[in-house]
Amino acid sequence: MSERPIKVLIAKPGLDGHDRGAKVLARGLRDEGFEVVYTGLRQTPEMIATTALQEDVDVVGLSILSGAHMTLLPRVTRLLRERGLDDVLVTAGGIIPDDDIPALREAGVAAVFGPGTTIAEVAAYFRTHVRQPEG
């Protein structure tokens, strides 16, 4: 098998109950040919980092609409680094004000996608920015 699918984790950090976007994204990415692991709601940063490790995903996608992104997302990226997952592409989406994006990028979130983002845009970004899988 030459071309293996890119594996993506879609996770919902914190006590945020808005899962519509995450589910739309998970299904949409499946239809784009990705293997998508979905965690469900209410994940701690520890749960997300350990799941990313066990599943050996290429991309971690964090969906957050609760407003707690500035505390939760940097914790996730820090834990990922601590577990040696520094080659994983970390992205986020949901309700995240533009003003917060530079700090999140500084913390290791490669890109942030807001309301109205199409699945095609996300899929294209993942395909071009994922680390090259080793032979």
């Binding site: 699918p5 998970a26 299904r27 990415l29 499946r30 239809d31 784009e32 040919g33 990705f34 293997e35 998508v36 692991v37 979905y38 965690t39 469900g40 994940q43 701690t44 520890e46 749960m47 350990t50 799941t51």
Partner: peptide, 21 residues
């Protein structure tokens, strides 16, 4: 896996996440 796109939605874990850590 979808026979057409090769994609898959892996959702079994949702029920097991209490043991994720």
């Amino acid at each position: 896996s979808s026979p057409i796109t090769g994609g898959a939605l892996l959702g079994d874990r949702v029920r097991m996440q209490a043991y994720a850590s």
